[in-house]
Nucleic acid binder design. Structure first.
Lengths: 293, 293
DNA sequence: TGTTCTTACGGCGCACGTAACCATT
DNA sequence: AATGGTTACGTGCGCCGTAAGAACA
């Protein structure tokens, strides 16, 4: 009658795995329990939510999934937020960042913060962009740094993440990374529209979906790289597996067999944003102030 | 561990009543059960949420309250949304509207919709502005019509209401309602800034809080009227209990002992917005199209 | 002393696990 | 036949109600 979050979690887990047994394993239940929980949820709503064999969400199930994930996130976020009100001041800052978010500006500001507060300890972990909001909302990190492509002064498009504030930290020019011998390698600048039919690298450092969002369809994926190592991406680009767009400072000057060309149009930047939920007292809030400049 | 919505509802109920016993009565539990539920929630979070005697939220409790209400609303809204995916087409339209939302434009458009769909049945109920979003989100009405003051072309400020879309329906000029013998009664137009020290009527038809939001502090309340009857408001205004701001069309032409004067500055309008969650098939979606013009 | 929240304790129901059952490949 | 979801059934834990207890007026 009230849609127990417990049941919702099992539901999303089953949907994600496409399997009752796999969900059971993940959640530490028996298959049977999972089956009963799903049945209970379906009985409660009076609708089938999953087709069996194969296990796939029905239209109603798909609708519920769209609600359930953010709902559960908000629930955990609320818990974390309430707990923060009672947290004592810390001098430990837990920072979560997407791979390219920690650039020169951020490092410098962080150094500044450490200079001001000698006792400050920083624990930095990298984190996939799609997880960052949840990590911060749930209090698993005090601050989050997200990077991504955006039009100048426009915000990034972060996944709906509940009550959280974002502040711009830095914006930087973008360059197209080309293999050394590429016909366009010598150019002073390039327009992305001229490259929509080229092969591109799909990687977390430069997600093509976002590029299509901003510029238009095209940008076919040549090779897909699931890691977040800049050197690997540069090596792949050098080997001609595809082009990629990176912040200028991420490419070592004069090194490697790649050639970088600034993007002239459309005006896009590599933007870094700071995410924070309500901040616990102590280091985190002070650092947030320094990071945003 | 997962913040059972069940416990959250009891918590908000207790907080609203400032009493365990009253909450127990409302929810159909014993005092004892309520006590145990609150204790369980406090144990789960490891924090006191309510001070006893008097029963009032602690800082942490206040924080939790801010989260709990919208969370529970979203939960019910999600349920309603999922159920709607399976709803069969209806020719019944359940419309919820704040008192002044059903104006000439809305009535005309509604008539147009009925002309196009002879089988259309409309069930209209009025609803307090602060409840409207919840009523629509939870599917207790198919469409909502909210009215309020706003700068021209600006949206109303509706309470955070989860996944819902709003569309402007109409905007209309505002008039100040003055008693017949008022010194300013003859004026061709008035500026609100000149009236911030006058006595005003506080009523759901013209909430002074919103006025202060838009124009600035002031607008002291003379008499507070909790009903939503225009004639009563006009009678109170005529008797000099205070000024009020209404859409021009709400005041009967030439009637009554009141005098109306258009507002010249700041530019404000009486705006009506249509609210809808995902629309069920059938009448509601068609009508929504007609209503938005 | 009255009101109101808390604690103790017993019972009932519910949710889970075991295991048998069935369906789909 | 094997894999994987469902159904049947027993058990234990959790949650609520009754009733007695404690705190504040």
């Amino acid at each position: 009658m009230l849609m127990d979050p417990h049941l919702l979690t099992t539901f999303v887990t089953v949907a994600r795995h496409g399997s009752f047994s796999a969900a059971a394993a993940e959640l530490g239940y028996t298959q049977s329990a999972i089956s009963q929980q799903i049945a209970a949820l379906e009985a409660d709503l009076g609708l089938p939510l999953l087709s069996r064999r194969p296990v796939e969400p029905t239209p109603a199930g798909r609708r519920l999934l769209e609600h359930a994930e953010p709902l559960l996130l908000r629930l955990r976020a609320a818990r974390a937020d309430v707990l923060r009100t009672a947290a004592q001041p810390r001098h430990l800052l837990r920072l979560a960042a997407t791979p390219l978010a920690v650039n020169a500006v951020v490092s410098a500001r962080l150094a500044e913060a450490r200079a001001r507060q000698p006792r400050l300890e920083v624990r930095l972990r990298t984190c996939r962009a799609e997880d960052l909001a949840a990590v911060v909302a749930e209090g698993r990190a005090d601050l989050g740094l997200a990077d991504g492509l955006a039009a100048p002064s426009d915000p990034l498009r972060l996944p709906e993440s509940g009550p959280m504030t974002t502040t711009g930290v830095s914006e930087e020019d973008l360059v197209v990374v080309l293999p050394g011998g590429h016909p366009l390698a010598g150019r002073a600048s390039l327009r992305l529209a001229d490259l929509i039919d080229a092969r591109w690298l799909q990687s977390p450092l430069c997600p093509l979906a976002r590029l299509r969002d901003l510029v238009g369809d095209g940008f076919p994926a040549g090779l897909e790289y699931e890691g977040d190592d800049v050197h690997t991406v540069l090596a792949l680009a050098a080997a001609g597996h595809g082009l990629t767009l990176l912040p200028a400072s991420a490419v070592p000057a004069g090194g490697g067999q790649v050639c970088v060309v600034p993007v002239s149009a459309p005006r896009l930047v590599h933007r870094v944003e700071l995410l924070h939920a309500a901040l616990p007292a102590g280091a985190p809030s002070d650092v947030a102030a320094v990071l945003t400049g």
